[in-house]
């Protein structure tokens, strides 16, 4: 058990290092995230100017939400990418057979790798635009250390939920051979239902409740609400529990799907 954990740390660390070699891309990405952060902030300011309590947010909440969104967009890999893309590529080339025969859990390996990537993206493409946003606008910050801790846990869970979804998308390549179409569609849903385009709390009536029950809500809406102090005490626990629930459900599904895929590869030779 100890050795497995240290292996996962090693995998995560390597993944972190690998992404950190693309410096120019990181700077370009930070710039782009900041530009989008500005545009979205101004649209939200316009909305909350008209309706100062829309969705239970005030204008500072809304602008903070806009920047949290830019910070999370790469961290949870909304547009896909990350370790799961490697899996899809390896399914296409057939190299995945090698992975399936490894004596370690495929899922654990890829999850560790994706967490390493997410860590890098959070510290660069998450933090930098957030600092930029904080310099330009008055933002809200977590009220105390407990909220910071809850937020930190929530971000990790946001990555695991998104990993579960992306892993299922990539695994579709076992049957479809090419996951481009599914990936495209999945990105659309992720973009919209994570609340990146517009906060889920703004959705009218019951659509808001539905959207907030879907796994994509765990990407941004939940961590953002924790940051903004919308979930306090037991409520915060429930919010994190929601993310844990989706993580478990998705990772279990991934496990079953990979087991089937394994059988398929073994029986049909890929």
């Amino acid at each position: 058990m100890r050795s497995t954990v240290s292996l996962w740390f090693a995998v995560a660390h390597r993944s972190f290092r690998r992404y950190s070699t693309y410096r120019a891309a990181t700077f370009a990405g930070i710039f782009t995230n900041s530009v989008f952060g500005l545009i979205i902030s101004f649209t939200y300011i316009a909305v909350w100017k008209q309706n100062p309590t829309a969705g239970g947010y005030d204008v500072a909440d809304a602008v903070t939400y806009a920047w949290l969104g830019q910070a999370m967009i790469m961290t949870v890999a909304v547009w896909s990418g990350g370790a799961t893309d490697d899996l899809a590529a390896r399914i296409k080339t057939g190299d995945v057979a090698i992975d399936l025969y490894r004596p370690v859990s495929l899922l654990g390996w890829y999850l560790a790798s994706d967490l390493g990537r997410a860590g890098y993206h959070l510290l660069t493409r998450g933090l930098a635009p957030m600092i930029f946003g904080a310099l330009v606008f008055d933002l809200h910050y977590p009220a105390n250390a407990l909220v910071w801790a809850q937020f930190a846990v929530s971000v990790v869970l946001a990555v695991t939920v998104s990993f579960g979804v992306r892993m299922l998308v990539s695994a579709s390549a076992f049957w479809l051979l090419d996951d481009t179409g599914v990936k495209h569609l999945a990105a659309v849903f992720a973009m919209f239902f994570s609340g990146l385009a517009v906060p889920l709390v703004l959705f009218p009536g019951w659509t808001s409740d539905v959207a907030q029950a879907l796994p994509w809500a765990a990407y941004l809406q939940v961590p953002a609400d924790i940051w903004l102090g919308k979930h306090q005490g037991l409520d915060a626990l429930a919010a994190v529990g929601f993310q844990v629930l989706w993580t478990v459900v998705l990772l279990l599904t991934c496990h079953l799907v990979l087991a089937r895929a394994n059988r398929k590869v073994v029986v049909h030779g890929g």
Partner: peptide, 15 residues
């Protein structure tokens, strides 16, 4: 969905 996002905003405001 880009445009739906705008519609969602307009479910909260008129202008």
């Amino acid at each position: 969905l880009d445009f739906v996002a705008i519609l969602v905003m307009f479910s909260n405001v008129d202008v």
